[in-house]
Nucleic acid binder design. Structure first.
Lengths: 193, 193
DNA sequence: AGACTTCTCGACCGGTTTATTCGAACATTT
DNA sequence: AAATGTTCGAATAAACCGGTCGAGAAGTCT
């Protein structure tokens, strides 16, 4: 049925809001059902389990992030701006997702291997994006990159390093200035003098 | 002991962060304990129950709000500005507290009478504050108020009316413009032409 | 040191919550 | 009207969670 798939999407959207607010464990099927104005049991007609819903939600969120990122880097021309806006959008989105992280890193090591899969896939995609930005920057003689592969990897590592303190501490210092500082450092090492 | 009271405060502060994030029901004693890096049982040496902690948290938060409000209206001179800043600070603070509301209005009608007590007390205080603002405004010939008592009550009713849609709906329209619109209406009826 | 107080914690208890199942009912299609 | 798609209330088994208890660590006083 075409409508079944439609309703699955609705479930993903609605439960996504709740998951993002309360995390996996604290979100109950009853809450999801109530938000959808259906009986709790009915959810199981569309999804096999709470985890399957969560998986769909995360997958969906990851796709949204990817779209935001590609749109963002397309929205500007200069390589410096591309890099800058990429980093900013990425961090903003991750901030929004902090509750998923809470959920994932709680205690459930067995389950949630699917998160690892998604993560791996998006790490690869991110690397490609970064390399593209670097490549174009080098072409335009703005960046000075000898090996875009490794440079992209280095940048990705930096971004990942940012994630942890971003999520586990609460608004210690404002993110913007921190990102700007990092970008400054990054550019001074990269930009042709 | 002086240190016992000290640690009670620490508990209130820490658990307050969690309560404000997840509400009363979804916050567990284990989480509070873990955040404090002590055993769950140890909490019961300082507080009799989860509810008692919650009570202390709400009381504390109410005091903070009061201080913010008095500081805010002192920070400006003109009656119009005083009124405006009062309304803004009040709404900003209430926004922050939305999760407490979630907790309180869940289903637990029996318990939480203490919230009613706090609320009543602060309603009275708020009325006094509003009346003061109105009175000074009238003195400076900026406001045209015949009966400050009833006018204050009317304003308070408006502000209370704002609370409900503010909390139960999510960011439909941005609060600022809504508040500004209300203030406009309010002033046009109050300010001497 | 030893007695006494303060404080911490692991283990446990019983009531509640919650994810999931199942079958019956309702709805729609064939 | 049979078959198929969809919803839901009730039941269940397991996990969870607030709270208790007693043992004992840590500190204080004499």
């Amino acid at each position: 049925m075409v409508n079944k798939e439609e309703f699955r999407k609705k479930i993903v959207l609605t439960s996504g809001q709740i998951f993002s607010r309360f995390g996996f464990k604290k979100t109950t099927m009853d809450e999801i059902a109530k938000a959808l104005k259906i009986g709790k049991s009915s959810i199981y007609y569309y999804f096999i389990s709470k985890e399957e819903i969560f998986e769909a939600v995360v997958l969906n969120e990851a796709n949204i992030l990817r779209n935001e990122l590609t749109a963002a880097i397309k929205s500007v021309e200069s390589p410096l701006e591309k890099m800058k806006i990429y980093v900013f959008v990425r961090m903003k989105s991750f901030e929004k997702l902090s509750n998923y992280y809470n959920a994932i890193f709680d205690k459930n090591l067995d389950h949630f291997e699917f998160i690892e899969r998604i993560r791996e896939k998006y790490d690869r995609e991110e690397l490609a994006m970064l390399r593209l930005i670097l490549y174009h920057g080098a072409r335009k003689k703005v960046f000075n990159v000898t090996n875009s592969e490794y440079t992209a990897l280095a940048i990705q590592t930096t971004l990942k390093g940012l994630e942890v303190p971003l999520f586990w501490k609460k608004k210690e210092l404002n993110i913007e200035s921190r990102l700007n500082a990092i970008l400054d450092v990054l550019f001074y090492g990269i930009v042709k003098k």
